[in-house]
Amino acid sequence: MAEALYRGTGRRKTAVARVRLLPGDGKITVNGRELAEFFPRPSYQTAVRSPLELLGSAGRYDVVAKIEGGGLTGQAEALRHGIARALAEESQESRGELKAAGMLTRDDRAVERKKYGLKKARKRPQFSKR
């Protein structure tokens, strides 16, 4: 197997994506499956390809990724974050472009914990005066 040119780890909610960029023709493989097979929804595919298209390097690298945890949206955004981090290693110029587009920032939003006495994180039981 070819040695990775660049590596990056992307995270979102509980999803973690370990990404390797290899010299190639733009093929994206996720957990041993094609991108379109792993993420059937076009919006997820667009999100995953966005860092490559931003830098115009869509056909220069093959992406091999292993993703664990989370749901499909979290996994797609974790993969985007991982690809962006791997591309940021390429040069300072590409890092600046990715940073300006907000792709290097880890989205720290997560599910708020449930509090005791409440039904969910903020939903309260019905109040009865009498």
Rank of each mutant, 00 (worst) to 15 (best):
residue 96 G to K: 09
residue 23 P to M: 07
residue 112 E to D: 13
residue 64 V to L: 07
residue 90 E to T: 01
residue 5 L to S: 06
residue 111 V to T: 11
residue 125 P to F: 10
residue 119 K to R: 15
residue 85 R to L: 13
residue 97 E to V: 04
residue 31 N to G: 07
residue 56 G to H: 11
residue 36 A to T: 14
residue 101 A to L: 06
residue 106 R to K: 11
residue 112 E to Y: 10
residue 82 G to I: 02
residue 91 S to I: 14
residue 57 S to Q: 15
residue 80 R to T: 03
residue 79 L to H: 02
residue 84 A to S: 15
residue 26 G to K: 06
residue 3 E to D: 12
residue 47 A to K: 04
residue 62 D to C: 11
residue 105 T to Q: 11
residue 95 R to A: 04
residue 25 D to S: 14
residue 113 R to H: 15
residue 129 K to Y: 09
residue 129 K to N: 08
residue 119 K to F: 14
residue 70 G to W: 03
residue 27 K to T: 07
residue 123 K to I: 13
residue 106 R to G: 01
residue 80 R to F: 00
residue 115 K to E: 14
residue 68 E to K: 01
residue 41 R to I: 09
residue 95 R to V: 03
residue 75 Q to S: 01
residue 25 D to Q: 14
residue 29 T to W: 03
residue 126 Q to V: 14
residue 16 V to R: 03
residue 116 Y to Q: 15
residue 55 L to E: 05
residue 5 L to Q: 07
residue 15 A to M: 02
residue 124 R to T: 14
residue 2 A to T: 11
residue 102 G to A: 09
residue 30 V to I: 10
residue 56 G to D: 10
residue 91 S to T: 13
residue 108 D to L: 10
residue 18 R to E: 13
residue 24 G to E: 03
residue 112 E to H: 10
residue 106 R to E: 03
residue 106 R to Y: 02
residue 108 D to R: 09
residue 111 V to S: 11
residue 65 A to H: 02
residue 51 P to T: 05
residue 127 F to D: 14
residue 61 Y to P: 10
residue 49 R to I: 00
residue 51 P to W: 00
residue 14 T to Y: 06
residue 24 G to V: 05
residue 106 R to W: 03
residue 61 Y to F: 15
residue 63 V to D: 02
residue 72 L to G: 07
residue 81 H to C: 08
residue 107 D to A: 06
residue 48 V to Y: 00
residue 10 G to K: 05
residue 56 G to T: 11
residue 67 I to F: 00
residue 6 Y to I: 11
residue 114 K to P: 10
residue 107 D to Q: 07
residue 119 K to M: 15
residue 87 L to M: 08
residue 49 R to H: 03
residue 107 D to C: 04
residue 65 A to S: 05
residue 8 G to E: 04
residue 89 E to D: 12
residue 26 G to N: 08
residue 46 T to D: 01
residue 93 E to A: 12
residue 19 V to K: 08
residue 61 Y to R: 12
residue 126 Q to C: 11
residue 109 R to D: 08
residue 100 A to H: 09
residue 77 E to Q: 06
residue 130 R to Y: 08
residue 100 A to F: 09
residue 86 A to P: 05
